[in-house]
């Protein structure tokens, strides 16, 4: 009965739950799914992290390469995030060039990196106008069940914290770069941005951490990114139905709480790896 109702009238099905302040999967409106973080899962990458929020699974690998700095900013490096949504993660994605959602997510990640200053691009410069690091942050979704952006941000920050780059110096005589693979050091991750996504139902009900189904049925989506100092880095609402500033404020408060949870998670997990050594 319920299954039939769900298939025939998915929106009504969800509404009947929301009326009772709960959701079909048993969560409250303001409750996130279990978030699991595993770092260092790719041994060939310089840094990596695997994040699961409920069923949504995202893996991030960081690879550093040497290159020459951009002409307009000779003492900075590059951070190049790329979000890939392959057909394996959901039937809604087709093979071929990245679709709109993947491109928008990549741009979102680039904006998060820039706005939150999670890593200063100047730190990636080795020798002014000569040599710098380019960090390729490849984020791949393995299972898509909504709330992609939150998972991506956690994966990125954790992978950056996990990343270790070898020491590089320029030999004065030969003018060539020398890589010392024995000496590796961590990146200077200054900020810990954490994002929290919200979905708006029927112009008024706000739920956190929407699943894929909730995302398609909702009338608007919103993502708030904060750092550990309660500073907002992003308030990304790509359209949809409008929200009052009071509702926005509630969302921001929830995002701040979420930041603490996830911040603790990332720290504990990173520490656990270090003590392991």
């Amino acid at each position: 009965m319920a299954a039939g109702f769900k298939t025939a009238e998915p929106l009504e099905y969800h509404r009947s739950f929301l009326k009772e302040n709960c959701r079909p999967d048993g969560r409250e409106l303001g409750e996130f799914r279990t978030t699991t973080l595993n770092i260092g899962s790719i041994s060939t990458a310089d840094g990596s992290a695997l994040v699961k929020i409920g069923n949504t699974t995202v893996i991030c690998g960081i690879k550093g390469e040497l290159t020459s700095p951009p002409a307009d900013a000779p003492n900075s490096g590059y951070i190049v995030p790329n979000v890939d949504l392959p057909p394996l993660c959901s039937s809604k994605f087709r093979p071929g060039p990245p679709g709109e959602q993947a491109q928008a997510a990549s741009q979102f990640m680039a904006d998060v990196i820039e706005s939150s200053e999670v890593l200063l691009k100047e730190d990636l410069c080795i020798e002014k106008a000569k040599l710098c690091w380019v960090l390729y942050c490849d984020i791949m979704c393995l299972d898509y069940d909504g709330n992609l952006l939150d998972a991506c941000v956690i994966a990125l920050v954790a992978a950056l914290k996990n990343a270790q780059l070898p020491e590089v110096s320029i030999n004065k005589d030969t003018d060539l770069a020398e890589v010392n693979t024995d000496k590796k050091r961590h990146l200077n991750v200054a900020k810990h941005p954490v994002s929290s996504s919200f979905a708006v139902f029927d112009d008024s009900i706000v739920i956190v951490d929407p699943t894929a189904e909730e995302e398609t049925l909702s009338t608007a989506m919103m993502t708030v990114v904060t750092d550990e100092n309660e500073t907002l880095c992003m308030l990304h609402k790509p359209g949809g139905t409008s929200l009052s500033s009071e509702k926005l404020q509630d969302c921001i408060s929830r995002a701040v709480t979420r930041n603490r949870e996830v911040g603790k998670l990332i720290n504990t997990v990173t520490q656990s790896v270090e003590t392991d050594k």
Binding site: M222, S242, S244, I252
Partner: peptide
């Protein structure tokens, strides 16, 4: 209703500044 339909931000700011 003069409410926020879309929001796109760059850079960091406090909640008060946002409001």
């Amino acid at each position: 209703q003069h409410r926020v339909m879309m929001s796109s931000t760059k850079g960091s700011f406090s909640v008060n500044e946002l409001q």
